[in-house]
Amino acid sequence: MKLIECPRDAMQGWTEFIPTETKTEYLNALLRVGFDTLDFGSFVSPKAIPQLRDTAEVLAGLDLSSTRTKLLAIVANLRGAETALGYSEIQYIGFPLSVSETFQQRNTNKSIAEALTEVADMQNRCEQGGKTLVVYLSMGFGNPYGDPWNPAVLGEFTEKLAALGVRVVALSDTIGASTPETIIPPFRELIPAFPNIEFGAHLHTTPTTWREKVDAAFEAGCRRFDGALGGIGGCPMAADQLTGNMATENLVTYLEAAGVPTGLHMEAFREAQRLSQRVFVGH
């Protein structure tokens, strides 16, 4: 079981700029919890995501001396990937590849075909640089634009990624549209069909639908889940009203009830929860 904590996703749409020292303090608290991976920042245009313009400064202040947690940075193009590749502290580079043509243009200002060409280049550079590329299939459970979606479409995208050598693919519910009926089929079909790929679930949700979504993905075989403390965040490029991230505390509650060990340091977890209130309510 892998839990990926995503403060980057929680912060990116926050209107008020969170000071660099506050971000750093919060991320250091999360590093003490023992998550598998911390999605800590992104190397994108500050015009697009002004909240994360200080990712390099935040990275410089992280205490990685006594954590097992790996770092993941999101990029929107090859230039961002090249920047991320220059940091030895970063193990994972994440790229959002949309199954919706409209959203790919809206999110990264390129077509799906152009994005796939960049993914191929990123994958080669990650292999050469000793890093792992994580591809998020965004709008993976539907979109508001009328673009085609179904499990077969996800399969076609995954087949292309597998041919490139991509080893981690996260099916992503960018707008909170997923239901158990749409979550179960793709995970159930893709996991056995692509044994060399680790599939993750990046599910945005409302506070009342989280359990059914987690349960569906878990029962379908997913063992990699993204979350954010407090369920804060979402995708600012997707809609005017943000649907929150999967709340990490709900994931932990679910796994504990299922008898699945999380390996988290719970005292540090509770301290990070307290700190998150200060980060997102007032600093």
Rank of each mutant, 00 (worst) to 15 (best):
K2H: 12
L3V: 01
E5W: 05
P7L: 10
R8D: 06
D9V: 04
K23P: 00
K23F: 07
Y26M: 09
N28L: 08
V33R: 06
G34D: 13
S42I: 09
V44N: 05
V44E: 11
K47C: 04
P50R: 01
Q51D: 14
T55G: 09
E57C: 12
E57A: 15
V58W: 04
A60G: 06
D63A: 10
S66A: 15
R68V: 10
T69Q: 08
K70G: 09
V75W: 05
A76G: 13
N77R: 13
A81W: 02
A81C: 15
I93Q: 06
G94E: 06
F95N: 05
V99I: 15
E101G: 13
T102W: 02
Q105A: 14
N107R: 09
A113I: 10
A115M: 07
V119A: 05
A120C: 12
M122T: 11
M122C: 10
Q123F: 07
C126W: 10
Q128I: 14
Q128C: 04
G129K: 11
G130I: 13
Y136V: 13
L137E: 01
M139R: 07
G140M: 02
F141G: 04
G142C: 04
N143P: 00
N143A: 01
W149N: 09
A152Y: 05
A152G: 01
V153R: 13
V153Y: 07
G155L: 03
G155D: 07
E156L: 11
T158W: 04
K160S: 15
A163L: 12
A163Q: 15
G165M: 03
G165W: 08
V166W: 05
R167Y: 06
V169F: 07
L171Q: 02
S172V: 15
S172K: 01
D173Y: 01
I175K: 11
A177G: 00
A177R: 07
S178H: 03
P180R: 12
P180W: 12
P180I: 14
I183M: 04
I184C: 03
F187A: 04
F187W: 05
F187V: 06
E189A: 15
F199A: 01
L203F: 05
T208P: 00
T209P: 00
A216T: 09
F218S: 01
E219V: 10
G221L: 01
C222F: 04
R223V: 02
D226F: 10
D226L: 04
G227K: 08
G227Q: 12
L229W: 04
L229F: 12
G231P: 06
P236A: 12
Q241K: 15
Q241N: 13
L242M: 14
G244P: 08
N245K: 06
M246R: 03
N250A: 09
V252G: 08
L255I: 00
L255M: 13
E256P: 03
A257Q: 14
A258R: 15
V260K: 08
H265D: 15
A268P: 10
R270V: 12
Q273H: 08
Q277G: 14
Q277F: 12
R278Q: 14
G282E: 14
